[in-house]
Design a protein around this nucleic acid. Sequence first.
DNA 1: GTAATACCTGAACCTTGGTTAAGGTCAAGC
DNA 2: GCTTGACCTTAACCAAGGTTCAGGTATTAC
Lengths: 122, 122
Amino acid sequence: MEITYAIADISAETGLSIDVIRYYERIGLLPAVKRKENGHRAYSKSDLARFTFVTHLKRTQMPLKEIEQYIRYYNEGNIEACYRVLHEHKGSIERQIAELTDSLGILNYKLDNYQQLIQPQE
Amino acid sequence: MEITYAIADISAETGLSIDVIRYYERIGLLPAVKRKENGHRAYSKSDLARFTFVTHLKRTQMPLKEIEQYIRYYNEGNIEACYRVLHEHKGSIERQIAELTDSLGILNYKLDNYQQLIQPQE
DNA sequence: GTAATACCTGAACCTTGGTTAAGGTCAAGC
DNA sequence: GCTTGACCTTAACCAAGGTTCAGGTATTAC
């Protein structure tokens, strides 16, 4: 009893559209998956896990090419390269957070100013 | 003695390339600026301030269309709309930070796992 | 049996956010 | 007087990341 998922399941779990899932396969981001008799894609539990992780990376602005590279290292069993890629990406996320935090400060300053213009009473 | 800035100055101050500055004007993101006798753009101090603010918004993933909308409200003197746009955007930045922080956690977990695989000793 | 679903394919098309190219003006320096 | 540098314009081009379309198969539901 091997559980498999249809493309619609993957879509529901990851929030990626069905078209995007096929698109990712097409550009080689993820290796092609097994098919059922009727030609429909049959995703395994670990395929789902991989898609889920990809969406995490994607949400942090990692370019698809880099994600693809990571997956390739992973499939090659090149653990050190995997580590390196994720480690570098961690730095990029930290920089993003710092930048956003900075922008938040600027934004709050502007918002304060507007607030005073809008409600100068009290 | 009115100080004006050449396009190269704006580029140097904001980090935007000269081409991008002209591109932003072209798509209507910022209203066209005054010209000198020779046709060269002459930016004022407030033009510079606006470009600087735009780069802040841009770095937080605000789409150019939304930035444009904000600038339009600003020029109309529609302060409340300006406030509303920035306030919404603040929410978006906060969501981004939350998401990145979340991803950072997942990433650290993965990195830990890899670390143990790479250096299982001690 | 026929309609509705759920999937399939390949190829064309789209949006965002620029970049590059080709050709021209003008002022300053040598 | 001619080259260099900083600017100008219009228009074509580009890359990333999808989205849409047209046409086809297979299963299920009525």
